[in-house]
Design a protein around this nucleic acid. Structure first.
Length: 1100
RNA sequence: GCUGAAGUGGUGGAAUUGGUAGACACGUUGGACUUAAAAUCCAAUGGCCAUUAUGGCCGUGCGGGUUCAAGUCCCGCCUUCAGUACCA
């Protein structure tokens, strides 16, 4: 035995070298590529540049599944192809390594997210390496590295220091804005800013305190602090962006989401709405993706119209109207007057705040403070309206009975008493003032009984946005969102109860309920009327929850004849539906087709079409000063704060509650250590747990929290940045990733310019891909990048889906029934590991019993001795147990097989279920390819002159593969390779002139086998930069064509004819053929169509 | 509802401007090799009807239309997927 082994060993060794030993070959070349840095890109080169980028992955604990590499393989093929075509190719890879899963894991285990992330990245790297990607790993970036997020923080500061000038249509330094404020105030500034920004003069600006100025500037900055209503997810303890919510629950984990008000950092992306829209026309992205972004930006063009509010209808007088004068004290006045004076000079904080807003008829009525009424001192009173305002401190909680008696007595005298708590006044004075204002308008003046307060006199008006100003004469009512600020002011006393009840009911309904319930029509009349700008007729004002406070002005002019919702609303509440369309029947439904509209019953708009009428009505509105043309966008500013640990810290500390930026030279501000990754007990973000998280402005260092003195040492921001922060400029950082002085050098960005080809999933359409475009445009405005779109071309690869395996458990038992019989039982679906199931959908019951304990004692109702599982195609996910790992495939078939197979599966953009059944096909192809080059005894290659057939096969392959790669049709080029190898094998081709160029064609797809065979052919340089073979038409030129001969369009037989025959000659030849006569059976054809080189069709 | 994409054998999918529908694979069936299995090779494979090699009919979601000729173009539907959703 021993001797035999020794004797045959050399033979086996030799033989194994001749086999397609993919595991050895792939390891060998991966090592060589890494050692020689074969794919390292230089920032300067004589070659033209090409930048191919993948969306970098989040390194999750589950590792790569077979879906991840799909896009990477496609981009790698393209990158390799471009190298063959003589380009200097940048093809980098990195990790989007901040994110929720690592943090969730940290919360559960206490493991620092950085540790988990590092482990996961190692796994990713190993998995990526074994697939043989041509990444330039020397440029790797990780968003969670301080050296990287230093620049994320830097961009944040740049945004903070900028405002958007709508006149120059670009972002500008905040300094330029301050200059304008100093010299002329803000009345001429045309900026993207908060809606509630007040107008001030230069004098006023200069009189403001530094804090007041900073507060005003925040309303202009491109990143700003604002109290916003956010999507709060209690389970995750964080705010979610709209695109992180799917069907009302969080995308991650599926937890419920509620609306909540919080102070948050926001990004003023809305300033860029129009440019984000226009820019789409300049880039080569798919229409599908552009449409998603267009919809998301949601531009609508129309007009803004202002409707004055009319007087309320008269109501009966109930109040006792004896004139009280201003001396309203009672018998004990002399005792109380001194006390009242004292209280006036020493008001509480809340009283002082409120008085500041009530004094000097600021609300349109005179108030007195600490005034005597009978034997009471009331805080504030408007004698004219007999309205008393009381501001209560904590002590009043214990004097409820006393207060009640006092209120009763005052009300008997005809006063109305409203009470506020200190916190209400200090917390949100606007709400308080709004309520007071509402009360004032509801109460009659005792001085003037005949003239009622009128909205028109007060200058109140409802502003609406409409896309159909041409239908303004069809407006028969108005609807306000229940949350609209005017609602409290204009509602008449008669309607108040009903309106309040409706508002309360709406507030209780969650977004989800509102969404689910689109059909129910609800609303309430406020009792108030607005005046039509042209007809001057009164229009009733309703509230209804179909109007959203967050879009437009939160108010609509309802034109029931032209809008179905308005129509339904009008029908439901019996509101008139005037018809303003010529010859259109609106008795059944509204008519919304604006292109077919001719306006009638509309005064000066009669007889006009939509376009003309719109133009005219806007002109008329401008003439009377009640409206103008306006464009609205659905795109909202993006909330940028997350109540999370594992994210970029904001380079921000707080001085007197106002945010201050840390100087750029002190970046990065690194994440502090915390003991717990959960929010603090007081509900602060996890960074609230950090003990060393204060900023010392003297030393410019992070110091212990105890040292905070608010003079030199200040608290730091506790929120962190969202996931998209780190991914919004990473593509530019790859150009110069190790630069510590700049985000990237001028030379680097000038050389690489922008991404030429970007490949990634379309699920990022309204997230990463929109935010990145926004930041790129900002960087462009700042002169930092040469182009304002970061990716010239974008391809969306489809997702590879899993095929889940489903067991059917009979309800309430531990019995499982096979698929065929499930309809006979009441069953629940249970997903199980797909690896337990064979290709015929039969499960291995023994393995299943060991898989999870619940199956140990389970009973199975079989069908023909087997248990067949149900199948469901869905997203690959750990929780569906349908994840297929690429490692096993690589182990069993090799990386080249995996690469080819993923491409062969179907068109790149298509969503497709993973199914390993076909992988033997491409693996067989590689073996066949190998055998074409390597025989039992060595290479099959020689210098034989190629035959005509050899050349024809090669050149048609060159042509097809080149076209396919340019069109990203990778699946068809795999077929083309198969055909080529099948043909060359049949031709017994051994010619080096054919087989060597063929390797270059295949190399982008299957680089390992190509490199190996390339080397065996005697090449010492890597195949990766070998020139792509040149296609030559002459080898494909044919002298004859096998014409399909069809009769009435149906192909019956074919006929070989020379290509240089004329039409007539072809016709003659075909007619002379006996098969033609057979088909015709004596009939004479009516017509013979001859398309030379294509087809012959005989009609008749 | 609106916007976009798609619908082709048992399966994944081909078909560049209208011009031989089903390339290339998988699977299945039969055969060769083998003690056997694997691997490999050969043949058949859209359906139906015939069968003497030859043939015939029907077929690209459904119904119409344009054309010598339609998977491809036009009109009207159906279904699936994705995005968005009371957006004024």
């Amino acid at each position: 035995m021993c001797c035999n082994t020794t004797k045959f060993a050399p033979y086996f060794k030799e033989n194994s070298k001749m086999r397609y030993n993919f595991n050895d070959i792939e390891k060998k070349w991966q090592k060589i590529w890494a050692e020689r840095e074969t794919f390292k890109a230089e920032n300067n080169s004589d070659k033209p540049k090409y930048y191919v980028l993948d969306m970098f992955p989040y390194p999750s604990g589950a590792g790569l599944h077979v879906g991840h590499p799909l896009g990477y393989i496609a981009s790698d093929i393209y990158a390799r192809y471009k190298r063959h075509k003589g380009f200097n190719v940048l093809h980098p890879q990195g990790y989007d390594s901040f994110g929720l899963p690592a943090e969730q894991y940290a919360i559960q285990t206490g493991q620092h997210p950085a540790v988990t992330t590092e482990t996961n990245i190692k796994t990713y790297r190993r998995q990526l390496d074994q697939i043989g990607f041509s990444f330039d790993w020397s440029r790797e970036v990780r968003t969670s590295n301080p050296e990287y997020y230093k620049w994320t923080q830097w961009i944040f500061i740049q945004l903070f220091e900028s405002w958007y000038n709508n006149d120059s249509n670009k972002a500008e330094s905040i300094e330029t804005l301050v200059e304008v404020f100093n010299s002329e105030g803000n009345s001429n500034v045309n900026a993207a800013c908060d809606d509630n920004t007040e107008i001030f003069t230069a004098e006023e600006w200069n009189s403001y305190s530094s804090e007041q100025q900073q507060e005003i500037l925040l309303k202009y900055r491109l990143t700003y602090l604002a109290e916003t209503e956010v999507n709060w997810c209690p389970a995750l303890g964080t705010v979610l962006a709209n695109d992180e919510i799917v069907n009302g629950v969080s995308e991650r984990g599926g937890h419920p989401v509620i609306r909540k008000k919080m102070t948050q950092w926001s990004m003023r992306i809305s300033a860029y709405a129009e440019r984000l829209l226009q820019g789409l026309d300049t880039i080569d992205w798919t229409d599908a993706l552009k449409d998603i972004q267009k919809n998301w930006i949601g531009k609508s063009v129309g007009a803004s119209v202002r409707f004055p509010i009319l007087s309320f209808p008269k109501r009966e007088k109930k109040l006792d109207s004896k004139m009280p004068g201003y001396m309203t004290g009672g018998n004990n006045s002399h005792l109380l007057i001194e006390r009242a004076k004292e209280m006036r000079t020493n008001p509480t904080e809340a009283e002082a705040a409120l008085w500041g807003s009530l004094r000097g008829k600021k609300l349109g009525a005179k108030f007195r403070q600490q005034h005597l009424i009978n034997d009471f001192i009331v805080d504030f009173v408007c004698l004219d309206k007999k309205l008393i305002i009381e501001v209560d401190g904590k002590i009043h909680d214990f004097k409820i009975e006393e207060d009640k008696a006092r209120t009763e007595r005052l009300e008997n005298d005809g006063y109305k008493v409203i009470r506020f708590k200190n916190e209400e006044v200090l917390g949100n004075i606007d709400v308080v003032l709004n309520k007071i204002e509402g009360e004032l308008t509801q109460r009659e003046s005792i001085k003037s009984e005949q003239v009622l307060p009128s909205g028109k006199d007060l200058g109140w008006e409802i502003e609406v946005f409409t896309t159909r100003p041409d239908t303004i004469f069809g407006a028969s009512f108005m609807t306000l969102a229940p949350e609209h600020e005017l609602v409290a002011k204009i509602t008449t006393p008669e309607q108040k109860v009903e309106v309040d009840a409706y508002i309360e009911a709406t507030a209780k309904r969650s977004e989800r309920d509102r969404m689910a319930d689109v059909k129910t029509i609800s609303g309430v009349f406020t009792g108030a009327y607005a005046e039509h700008p042209f007809s001057k007729t009164p229009i009733p004002i309703w509230i209804g929850d179909y109007v959203l406070a967050s879009y437009g002005t939160g108010a609509v002019m309802a034109v029931p004849c032209g809008d179905q919702r308005d129509y339904d609303f009008a029908k439901h509440f019996n509101i008139p539906i005037p018809n303003i369309f010529e010859g259109i029947d609106i008795s059944e439904e509204a008519f919304a087709d604006k292109d077919k509209t001719i306006i009638a019953n509309s005064d000066f708009l009669n007889g006009m079409n939509y376009k003309k009428a719109t133009k005219r009505v806007i002109y008329e509105l401008e003439q009377i000063g009640q409206g103008e043309g306006k464009t609205n966008y659905r795109l909202r500013d993006a909330v940028f704060s997350r109540q999370r640990y594992w994210g970029e810290p904001f380079p921000v500390y707080y001085k007197n509650g106002l945010p201050q930026m840390i100087d750029v030279e002190h970046l990065p501000l690194t994440l502090p250590e915390v003991e717990k990754y959960l929010p603090t007990e007081t509900g602060e973000p996890p960074l609230g747990n950090a003990r060393v998280w204060a900023w010392n402005t003297a030393t410019n260092a992070v110091v212990e929290n105890e040292k905070i003195d608010n003079t030199t040492i200040f608290p730091l921001e506790l929120n962190t940045m969202p996931g998209w922060a780190g991914s919004s400029q990473y593509f530019n950082r790859y150009m110069d990733p190790r630069n510590d002085n700049e985000i990237f050098s001028q030379e680097a960005i000038d050389y690489w310019q922008q991404v030429d080809l970007y490949i990634g999933g379309s699920e990022h359409a309204t997230g990463h891909l929109l935010y990145s475009r926004f930041w790129q445009k900002f960087m462009f405005d700042k002169g930092l990048v040469p182009v304002d779109e970061f990716a010239k071309k974008l391809i969306n690869q489809g997702m590879i889906l899993g095929t889940s395996a489903i067991l059917y458990r009979v309800s309430g038992t531990n019995q499982y029934v096979s698929r065929e019989q499930k309809h006979n039982y009441d069953v629940e679906e249970i997903r199980v590991d797909v690896n337990l199931v064979n290709a015929s959908d039969e499960i291995d019951i023994e393995k299943l019993k060991h898989w999870q304990p619940q199956f140990k004692d389970a009973e199975f109702i079989l069908e023909n001795g087997n248990y067949t599982v149900g199948r469901e195609v869905e997203k690959m996910s750990k929780r569906w147990f349908n994840v297929v790992n690429p490692d096993d495939i690589v182990e069993q078939y090799g990386a080249d097989s995996l690469r080819l197979y993923e491409m062969f599966l179907g068109p790149l953009e298509q969503y497709k279920p993973w199914n390993t059944a076909g992988i033997t096909g491409v693996h067989g192809f590689l073996k066949k390819l190998w055998k074409l080059y390597v025989g039992q005894d060595g290479l099959n290659i020689n210098d034989a002159e190629p035959t005509k057939d050899n050349l024809k096969t090669l050149h048609k392959t060159i042509k097809k593969v080149e076209e396919d790669i340019e069109n990203f049709s990778f699946n068809t080029s795999v077929s083309t390779f198969m055909i080529a190898v099948n043909e060359l094998t049949a031709q017994k081709c051994t010619s080096k002139d054919i087989l060597e160029p063929l390797l270059v064609l295949i190399s982008p797809y299957a680089p390992h086998i190509a490199e190996e065979l390339w080397e065996r052919l005697g090449n010492s340089e890597s195949i990766s930069t070998a020139p792509f073979p040149k296609f030559e038409e002459k080898y494909l030129v044919e002298s004859s064509k096998n014409y399909p001969i069809s009769f009435n369009g149906k192909m019956r037989f074919t006929m070989e004819l020379p290509l240089d025959l004329s039409k007539d000659d072809i016709e003659a030849a075909v007619m002379a053929n006996e098969k033609t006569q057979e088909q015709l059976q004596g009939r004479t054809p009516k017509k013979v169509i001859v398309v030379p080189g294509k087809i012959v069709n005989i009609v008749g």
